[in-house]
Design a protein around this nucleic acid. Sequence first.
DNA 1: GACCAGGGTTCATTCACCGAACTTGCTGGG
DNA 2: CCCAGCAAGTTCGGTGAATGAACCCTGGTC
Lengths: 180, 180
Amino acid sequence: MPLPHDYSGQSCSLARALEIVGERWTLLIVRDAFYGVRRFDDFAAHLGIPRAVLSERLKSLTTAGVLVRVGTDGARHEYELTPKGVALWPALRALTDWGDDHYAPTGPRRILLHAEDGAPLERDGRCSGCGARVEPADVVIAPGPGLVPTSGSPDRVTAALAIPHRALEPISPRDPGTPA
Amino acid sequence: MPLPHDYSGQSCSLARALEIVGERWTLLIVRDAFYGVRRFDDFAAHLGIPRAVLSERLKSLTTAGVLVRVGTDGARHEYELTPKGVALWPALRALTDWGDDHYAPTGPRRILLHAEDGAPLERDGRCSGCGARVEPADVVIAPGPGLVPTSGSPDRVTAALAIPHRALEPISPRDPGTPA
DNA sequence: GACCAGGGTTCATTCACCGAACTTGCTGGG
DNA sequence: CCCAGCAAGTTCGGTGAATGAACCCTGGTC
C-alpha cells in the first residue's frame, strides 16, 4: 500500500491519487465494482481478501468518495461507484492493458466491447467500430482468449463474469438462476 | 503494496500488473524515472523513501524488467526505464490526471507539453496543437499552476523539476551548473 | 593516506496484513 | 415463539513488511 500516510511534501498528483487507491487490494476492489460486484461477501469471495482488510478498504474508499454505501433493506446494503470512482476507469484500463501486454501470453483475459455495436474498444477508449468515445456504462466486459477456465465450482462473481455483461450493472441482482 | 505475492487464482491482468508495480512506492519510483531521476540518492532524497525499501524496489523493478541498471563507472551506476517501463506511461498519466482532477484545487501541479511545438497534451496523449500522438520521449514536463513553491532549499531533483525539461532525460547529468 | 560522496546493508521497532473464529442483525421455517 | 441460516462485519493472535537511524564498503580527491 503506497502512502496512506502523509505525503504532503510531494508536489505530485500521482502521490495524492496513490494515497487513495494505492493501497493493497484497493484497485482490485474498484475494478470489481466496475464489473458489477456490490456486496461484501462477493468482494471477499472473489478477491480472496481477508474480511478485516476488505472492511477497512470499503470504509476508506467510502470516506474518500470513491464508493457509496447504498442501503438496500436493513442490513443488506451495497457499494456503488460514485462519479469520482467511475473517473478511475482510464487508469484501471491503462494498468490492465499493461498487464495484458506483458503478462498475458495467450491474449487478454477479458475484452471490452462497445454495448451499442459490439465492436471492441481501442486503447484510447474509442470504439473500433463506430469511433465514438465510449463511457464506462456503455462497456460490455466479455471473456477474452487468455481467460483460463475455472477449475471446480467458482464463486458467484467468477461465474457471472464468464458471460459478457455490461460494466457497472450489478451481477445477478438477488439470487442466481435468472433462467432465460 | 497490493499483491507482491501470488494472486494466481485471479484471472485478471490488473492483478498481474499490480504484483509488479502495485507495491508501496513503486509507481512513484517509476514516475521519478520518467522525470529523469536515475541515481539512488536522488530517488531517496526526492521521495523520502527509506533506503532499504528503495534498494529492494529497485531490485524488484530491475528483475521485472521495468528498469535496467546501467554501470556508468565502477560503483556509480544509474537506473533507466526499459521499453516495458516506458509502457507504463499511459497508466501513470491516467492516475495522475485523476489526482489532478480530484486533489489539485488550484490546478495541475505539473503540465505536459509536446516538445515539438510546446502545446499542452490532451488526456488521450495527443498534442492539442498538432494533434500527433506524442511519445513519452517527446514530452516536456513543466511546472503547473498548482505547484506550490518549495520552502527552504530543495533537493537536486525538486530544483531540477522547477524548470521545464524533457521526460526521460537525466536531470543535471553530473554536476549542477551547466551554464548556457 | 585522510577525507568525502555515492550506494547501499543491518537492525530494532512499529505497523499492516493474514486467516480463522466470533458477533450481530435480519429472515424464514416449524 | 424459537431456532436455523445468511449477510456483514469485528476481534484476535501470529507473521511479514515498512520505517528510520546507524553503519559499511568502494572509488575518487586533495
